[in-house]
Design a binder for these strands. Structure first.
Length: 353
DNA sequence: AAATCGGGGGG
DNA sequence: CCCCCAGATTT
Protein backbone atom coordinates (compact mmCIF):
# COMPACT_ATOMS: atom_id res chain seq x y z
CA UNK A 1 0.00 0.00 0.00
CA UNK A 2 2.60 2.48 1.10
CA UNK A 3 5.01 0.99 -1.42
CA UNK A 4 2.59 1.61 -4.24
CA UNK A 5 2.24 5.23 -3.37
CA UNK A 6 6.01 5.51 -3.01
CA UNK A 7 6.59 4.42 -6.61
CA UNK A 8 3.60 6.40 -7.84
CA UNK A 9 4.96 9.58 -6.30
CA UNK A 10 8.45 9.00 -7.65
CA UNK A 11 7.06 8.32 -11.12
CA UNK A 12 4.81 11.37 -11.05
CA UNK A 13 7.79 13.48 -10.08
CA UNK A 14 9.86 11.91 -12.88
CA UNK A 15 7.19 12.66 -15.46
CA UNK A 16 7.17 16.32 -14.51
CA UNK A 17 10.75 17.03 -13.44
CA UNK A 18 13.04 14.09 -14.17
CA UNK A 19 15.84 14.17 -16.71
CA UNK A 20 14.72 12.24 -19.77
CA UNK A 21 17.06 13.61 -22.41
CA UNK A 22 20.36 12.10 -21.28
CA UNK A 23 22.30 10.50 -24.13
CA UNK A 24 21.85 6.94 -22.88
CA UNK A 25 18.13 7.40 -22.36
CA UNK A 26 17.37 7.77 -26.04
CA UNK A 27 17.04 4.08 -26.86
CA UNK A 28 17.12 1.51 -24.08
CA UNK A 29 19.26 -1.15 -25.69
CA UNK A 30 21.29 -3.49 -23.53
CA UNK A 31 24.63 -2.30 -24.93
CA UNK A 32 24.11 1.41 -24.33
CA UNK A 33 22.42 0.88 -20.97
CA UNK A 34 25.27 -1.36 -19.88
CA UNK A 35 28.01 1.05 -20.98
CA UNK A 36 26.28 4.00 -19.34
CA UNK A 37 25.66 2.15 -16.08
CA UNK A 38 29.32 1.17 -15.82
CA UNK A 39 30.41 4.75 -16.48
CA UNK A 40 27.91 6.06 -13.94
CA UNK A 41 29.39 3.92 -11.18
CA UNK A 42 31.23 6.31 -8.88
CA UNK A 43 30.92 9.09 -11.42
CA UNK A 44 28.44 11.90 -11.81
CA UNK A 45 26.22 12.40 -14.83
CA UNK A 46 27.86 15.62 -15.97
CA UNK A 47 31.29 14.01 -16.07
CA UNK A 48 30.03 10.93 -17.87
CA UNK A 49 28.19 12.60 -20.78
CA UNK A 50 31.17 13.55 -22.99
CA UNK A 51 32.91 10.26 -22.29
CA UNK A 52 29.79 8.30 -23.14
CA UNK A 53 29.31 10.08 -26.42
CA UNK A 54 32.89 9.60 -27.50
CA UNK A 55 32.89 5.99 -26.37
CA UNK A 56 29.79 5.17 -28.40
CA UNK A 57 31.29 6.77 -31.47
CA UNK A 58 34.47 4.74 -31.10
CA UNK A 59 32.74 1.50 -30.11
CA UNK A 60 29.17 1.71 -31.45
CA UNK A 61 28.25 -1.88 -30.62
CA UNK A 62 29.33 -4.91 -28.70
CA UNK A 63 31.32 -6.32 -31.60
CA UNK A 64 33.32 -3.14 -32.03
CA UNK A 65 34.13 -3.12 -28.33
CA UNK A 66 34.99 -6.81 -28.23
CA UNK A 67 37.54 -6.61 -31.05
CA UNK A 68 39.04 -3.30 -29.96
CA UNK A 69 42.53 -3.38 -28.42
CA UNK A 70 42.41 -2.82 -24.66
CA UNK A 71 44.67 0.17 -25.11
CA UNK A 72 42.06 1.87 -27.28
CA UNK A 73 39.41 1.24 -24.63
CA UNK A 74 41.61 2.56 -21.86
CA UNK A 75 42.47 5.59 -23.94
CA UNK A 76 38.79 6.36 -24.34
CA UNK A 77 38.40 5.97 -20.58
CA UNK A 78 41.36 8.16 -19.75
CA UNK A 79 40.33 10.77 -17.20
CA UNK A 80 37.22 9.00 -15.95
CA UNK A 81 39.11 7.11 -13.25
CA UNK A 82 38.63 3.63 -11.84
CA UNK A 83 40.21 2.02 -14.87
CA UNK A 84 39.32 -1.46 -13.70
CA UNK A 85 35.85 -0.57 -14.95
CA UNK A 86 37.18 -0.23 -18.49
CA UNK A 87 39.13 -3.46 -18.34
CA UNK A 88 36.10 -5.33 -16.99
CA UNK A 89 33.89 -3.78 -19.65
CA UNK A 90 36.25 -4.97 -22.34
CA UNK A 91 36.56 -8.46 -20.88
CA UNK A 92 32.79 -8.72 -20.56
CA UNK A 93 32.39 -7.59 -24.18
CA UNK A 94 34.63 -10.43 -25.31
CA UNK A 95 32.54 -12.89 -23.32
CA UNK A 96 29.22 -11.56 -24.62
CA UNK A 97 30.44 -11.51 -28.22
CA UNK A 98 31.41 -15.17 -27.90
CA UNK A 99 27.93 -16.05 -26.63
CA UNK A 100 24.80 -15.56 -28.65
CA UNK A 101 23.60 -12.10 -27.73
CA UNK A 102 23.30 -10.40 -24.37
CA UNK A 103 22.29 -12.27 -21.24
CA UNK A 104 18.70 -11.76 -20.17
CA UNK A 105 18.69 -12.89 -16.57
CA UNK A 106 20.01 -11.27 -13.43
CA UNK A 107 22.26 -14.22 -12.65
CA UNK A 108 23.81 -14.26 -16.12
CA UNK A 109 24.57 -10.54 -16.06
CA UNK A 110 26.08 -10.83 -12.59
CA UNK A 111 28.53 -13.45 -13.81
CA UNK A 112 30.14 -10.85 -16.07
CA UNK A 113 33.15 -8.97 -14.66
CA UNK A 114 32.33 -5.54 -13.29
CA UNK A 115 28.63 -6.22 -12.85
CA UNK A 116 27.21 -6.69 -9.38
CA UNK A 117 23.67 -6.96 -8.16
CA UNK A 118 22.82 -3.27 -8.45
CA UNK A 119 24.22 -2.76 -11.94
CA UNK A 120 22.58 -5.97 -13.15
CA UNK A 121 19.27 -4.83 -11.67
CA UNK A 122 19.57 -1.48 -13.42
CA UNK A 123 20.35 -3.06 -16.78
CA UNK A 124 17.47 -5.51 -16.54
CA UNK A 125 14.90 -3.00 -15.41
CA UNK A 126 15.93 -0.30 -17.87
CA UNK A 127 16.76 -2.36 -20.95
CA UNK A 128 14.42 -5.31 -20.44
CA UNK A 129 11.66 -3.79 -18.31
CA UNK A 130 11.82 -6.71 -15.93
CA UNK A 131 11.34 -5.65 -12.34
CA UNK A 132 14.55 -5.80 -10.31
CA UNK A 133 15.61 -3.57 -7.44
CA UNK A 134 18.82 -1.56 -7.48
CA UNK A 135 20.86 -0.10 -4.65
CA UNK A 136 23.31 2.50 -5.80
CA UNK A 137 24.41 5.46 -3.72
CA UNK A 138 21.40 7.54 -4.72
CA UNK A 139 18.89 4.87 -3.77
CA UNK A 140 20.70 4.19 -0.50
CA UNK A 141 20.33 7.85 0.36
CA UNK A 142 16.65 8.13 -0.56
CA UNK A 143 15.64 4.97 1.25
CA UNK A 144 17.76 5.42 4.36
CA UNK A 145 16.22 8.86 4.76
CA UNK A 146 12.66 7.97 3.86
CA UNK A 147 12.62 5.01 6.25
CA UNK A 148 15.12 6.46 8.74
CA UNK A 149 17.49 3.50 8.41
CA UNK A 150 20.44 4.22 10.65
CA UNK A 151 23.91 2.80 10.37
CA UNK A 152 26.50 2.81 7.63
CA UNK A 153 25.25 1.05 4.44
CA UNK A 154 28.63 -0.68 4.19
CA UNK A 155 27.57 -2.86 7.13
CA UNK A 156 25.93 -6.02 5.91
CA UNK A 157 22.84 -5.80 8.10
CA UNK A 158 22.19 -2.21 6.98
CA UNK A 159 22.67 -3.18 3.33
CA UNK A 160 20.31 -6.12 3.76
CA UNK A 161 17.64 -3.85 5.17
CA UNK A 162 18.07 -1.36 2.33
CA UNK A 163 17.92 -4.08 -0.33
CA UNK A 164 14.73 -5.33 1.26
CA UNK A 165 13.18 -1.85 1.19
CA UNK A 166 14.36 -1.26 -2.37
CA UNK A 167 12.70 -4.48 -3.49
CA UNK A 168 9.46 -3.52 -1.73
CA UNK A 169 9.41 -0.11 -3.35
CA UNK A 170 10.23 -1.26 -6.88
CA UNK A 171 7.03 -1.54 -8.93
CA UNK A 172 6.15 -4.15 -11.53
CA UNK A 173 4.80 -1.53 -13.92
CA UNK A 174 6.95 1.17 -15.51
CA UNK A 175 10.02 -0.26 -13.83
CA UNK A 176 12.39 1.25 -16.39
CA UNK A 177 11.10 4.74 -15.66
CA UNK A 178 11.04 4.04 -11.93
CA UNK A 179 14.70 2.98 -11.89
CA UNK A 180 15.77 6.10 -13.75
CA UNK A 181 13.49 8.17 -11.55
CA UNK A 182 14.73 7.01 -8.17
CA UNK A 183 18.34 7.52 -9.20
CA UNK A 184 17.54 10.95 -10.61
CA UNK A 185 15.65 11.92 -7.47
CA UNK A 186 18.59 10.89 -5.32
CA UNK A 187 21.05 12.75 -7.51
CA UNK A 188 19.16 16.02 -7.90
CA UNK A 189 16.75 16.36 -4.95
CA UNK A 190 17.73 14.00 -2.15
CA UNK A 191 21.33 15.13 -2.38
CA UNK A 192 24.00 14.29 0.15
CA UNK A 193 24.18 17.85 1.38
CA UNK A 194 21.53 20.51 1.15
CA UNK A 195 18.77 18.23 -0.09
CA UNK A 196 15.83 20.03 -1.68
CA UNK A 197 13.18 18.65 0.65
CA UNK A 198 10.77 21.45 -0.23
CA UNK A 199 10.29 20.12 -3.73
CA UNK A 200 10.66 16.41 -2.92
CA UNK A 201 7.64 14.28 -3.81
CA UNK A 202 8.31 12.12 -0.75
CA UNK A 203 8.72 14.89 1.79
CA UNK A 204 5.47 14.42 3.73
CA UNK A 205 6.17 10.86 4.79
CA UNK A 206 9.95 11.07 4.88
CA UNK A 207 10.95 9.94 8.37
CA UNK A 208 14.32 11.66 8.30
CA UNK A 209 12.59 14.92 7.50
CA UNK A 210 9.85 14.45 10.07
CA UNK A 211 12.43 13.67 12.73
CA UNK A 212 14.93 16.32 11.68
CA UNK A 213 17.59 13.75 10.96
CA UNK A 214 18.33 14.46 7.32
CA UNK A 215 21.92 15.45 7.97
CA UNK A 216 22.78 12.24 9.83
CA UNK A 217 21.37 9.88 7.22
CA UNK A 218 22.60 7.78 5.59
CA UNK A 219 24.91 6.77 8.40
CA UNK A 220 28.60 7.32 7.73
CA UNK A 221 31.38 4.87 8.03
CA UNK A 222 32.49 4.68 11.63
CA UNK A 223 35.85 6.30 11.19
CA UNK A 224 38.22 5.19 13.87
CA UNK A 225 37.67 7.66 16.67
CA UNK A 226 40.73 9.83 16.75
CA UNK A 227 42.51 10.17 20.09
CA UNK A 228 42.29 13.60 21.69
CA UNK A 229 45.23 15.41 23.25
CA UNK A 230 44.98 18.44 25.48
CA UNK A 231 47.27 21.39 25.85
CA UNK A 232 47.37 25.02 26.93
CA UNK A 233 48.58 27.85 24.74
CA UNK A 234 50.09 30.79 26.54
CA UNK A 235 49.04 34.04 24.91
CA UNK A 236 51.52 36.34 26.58
CA UNK A 237 50.72 39.95 25.83
CA UNK A 238 52.68 42.99 26.91
CA UNK A 239 50.14 45.65 27.61
CA UNK A 240 52.25 48.69 26.70
CA UNK A 241 53.30 47.51 23.23
CA UNK A 242 50.44 45.16 22.57
CA UNK A 243 52.85 42.50 21.44
CA UNK A 244 52.50 38.72 21.66
CA UNK A 245 55.16 36.17 22.41
CA UNK A 246 55.64 33.51 19.76
CA UNK A 247 57.97 30.52 19.81
CA UNK A 248 59.40 28.66 16.90
CA UNK A 249 58.31 25.05 17.10
CA UNK A 250 60.81 22.23 16.75
CA UNK A 251 61.47 21.21 13.15
CA UNK A 252 59.90 17.78 13.62
CA UNK A 253 56.36 17.01 14.71
CA UNK A 254 53.22 19.01 14.19
CA UNK A 255 53.61 22.51 12.86
CA UNK A 256 57.33 21.86 12.48
CA UNK A 257 59.26 25.11 12.14
CA UNK A 258 56.16 27.29 12.36
CA UNK A 259 55.65 30.05 14.90
CA UNK A 260 53.19 29.29 17.65
CA UNK A 261 52.26 30.15 21.21
CA UNK A 262 54.29 28.50 23.96
CA UNK A 263 52.61 25.20 24.76
CA UNK A 264 52.09 23.60 28.19
CA UNK A 265 50.37 20.55 29.64
CA UNK A 266 47.94 22.62 31.70
CA UNK A 267 47.26 26.06 33.12
CA UNK A 268 49.41 25.56 36.20
CA UNK A 269 52.38 24.67 34.07
CA UNK A 270 51.88 27.81 31.99
CA UNK A 271 51.62 30.09 35.02
CA UNK A 272 54.56 28.41 36.76
CA UNK A 273 56.66 29.06 33.71
CA UNK A 274 55.81 32.76 33.92
CA UNK A 275 56.81 32.82 37.56
CA UNK A 276 60.06 30.98 37.05
CA UNK A 277 61.05 33.25 34.17
CA UNK A 278 60.34 36.48 36.02
CA UNK A 279 57.38 37.40 33.90
CA UNK A 280 55.11 39.44 36.14
CA UNK A 281 51.56 38.24 35.64
CA UNK A 282 49.45 41.36 35.73
CA UNK A 283 46.20 39.51 35.17
CA UNK A 284 45.23 36.37 33.32
CA UNK A 285 42.13 35.02 31.66
CA UNK A 286 41.27 31.53 30.45
CA UNK A 287 39.52 31.54 27.08
CA UNK A 288 37.18 28.91 25.73
CA UNK A 289 38.85 25.66 24.69
CA UNK A 290 38.79 24.79 21.01
CA UNK A 291 39.51 21.74 18.92
CA UNK A 292 41.87 21.40 15.99
CA UNK A 293 41.85 18.11 14.12
CA UNK A 294 44.85 16.50 12.50
CA UNK A 295 44.84 13.38 10.38
CA UNK A 296 45.72 11.27 13.40
CA UNK A 297 44.37 13.07 16.47
CA UNK A 298 42.31 15.93 17.85
CA UNK A 299 44.09 18.68 19.69
CA UNK A 300 41.91 20.34 22.34
CA UNK A 301 43.70 23.50 23.30
CA UNK A 302 42.91 26.06 25.95
CA UNK A 303 44.21 29.57 25.34
CA UNK A 304 45.34 31.38 28.48
CA UNK A 305 45.70 35.09 27.96
CA UNK A 306 48.31 36.63 30.27
CA UNK A 307 48.93 40.34 30.45
CA UNK A 308 52.35 41.29 31.66
CA UNK A 309 53.75 44.69 32.43
CA UNK A 310 57.44 44.65 31.77
CA UNK A 311 58.75 41.99 29.45
CA UNK A 312 62.17 43.62 29.28
CA UNK A 313 63.39 41.38 32.06
CA UNK A 314 62.57 38.34 30.04
CA UNK A 315 65.56 37.13 28.10
CA UNK A 316 64.68 35.10 25.06
CA UNK A 317 66.67 32.10 24.01
CA UNK A 318 68.57 32.83 20.87
CA UNK A 319 66.14 32.88 18.00
CA UNK A 320 63.69 30.61 19.78
CA UNK A 321 61.11 33.20 20.72
CA UNK A 322 60.14 36.64 19.65
CA UNK A 323 57.68 39.41 20.47
CA UNK A 324 55.38 40.31 17.62
CA UNK A 325 52.87 43.04 17.19
CA UNK A 326 49.50 41.47 16.64
CA UNK A 327 48.82 43.41 13.43
CA UNK A 328 52.03 42.31 11.72
CA UNK A 329 51.76 38.66 12.60
CA UNK A 330 49.26 38.05 9.81
CA UNK A 331 52.14 37.74 7.35
CA UNK A 332 53.95 35.18 9.45
CA UNK A 333 53.89 31.42 8.94
CA UNK A 334 51.60 30.41 11.75
CA UNK A 335 49.25 27.43 12.03
CA UNK A 336 45.53 28.01 11.60
CA UNK A 337 44.54 27.90 15.28
CA UNK A 338 47.21 30.49 16.07
CA UNK A 339 46.02 32.72 13.27
CA UNK A 340 42.45 32.43 14.48
CA UNK A 341 43.34 33.24 18.05
CA UNK A 342 45.35 36.27 17.00
CA UNK A 343 42.40 37.48 15.00
CA UNK A 344 40.17 37.11 18.04
CA UNK A 345 42.66 39.07 20.08
CA UNK A 346 42.84 41.99 17.71
CA UNK A 347 39.04 42.10 17.44
CA UNK A 348 38.70 42.22 21.20
CA UNK A 349 41.17 45.05 21.31
CA UNK A 350 39.21 46.96 18.74
CA UNK A 351 36.15 46.53 20.87
CA UNK A 352 37.90 47.52 24.07
CA UNK A 353 39.70 50.56 22.72
C1' DA B 1 41.01 17.72 4.55
C1' DA B 2 37.37 14.40 4.35
C1' DA B 3 33.63 12.00 2.33
C1' DT B 4 31.92 9.84 -1.60
C1' DC B 5 30.85 6.01 -4.94
C1' DG B 6 29.77 -0.15 -6.73
C1' DG B 7 32.39 -4.01 -7.38
C1' DG B 8 36.39 -6.97 -6.63
C1' DG B 9 39.48 -9.27 -3.82
C1' DG B 10 41.85 -10.71 0.26
C1' DG B 11 42.05 -11.85 5.31
C1' DC C 1 31.67 -11.90 6.79
C1' DC C 2 34.41 -7.67 7.06
C1' DC C 3 37.71 -4.47 5.41
C1' DC C 4 40.16 -2.05 2.05
C1' DC C 5 41.04 -0.30 -2.45
C1' DA C 6 40.81 2.53 -6.69
C1' DG C 7 40.82 8.09 -8.20
C1' DA C 8 38.48 12.08 -9.29
C1' DT C 9 35.21 15.23 -7.54
C1' DT C 10 32.62 17.77 -4.03
C1' DT C 11 32.04 20.06 0.21
Amino acid sequence: MEERSFAAKVLAWFDRNGRKDLPWQQSPEPYSVWVSEIMLQQTQVAAVIPYYQRFMELFPDIQALAVAPIDAVLAAWSGLGYYARARNLHRAAEIIARQEGFPDTLEAWMKLPGIGRSTAGAILSIAYSTSHPILDGNVKRVLSRFYAVHGWPGKSHVARELWHLSAECTPQERVADYTQAIMDLGATVCRRSKPLCQICPLNEECRARRENRIAELPGRKAGRPLPAKQCVFLLLQDDPGKRILLERRPPRGIWGGLWSFPEYRDIDAALSWCQENAVPVHRHQTLTSRRHTFSHYHLDYTPVLVHTENPKHFVMESGGAVWYKVETIAKLGVPTPVRQLLQTLSCDEDNND
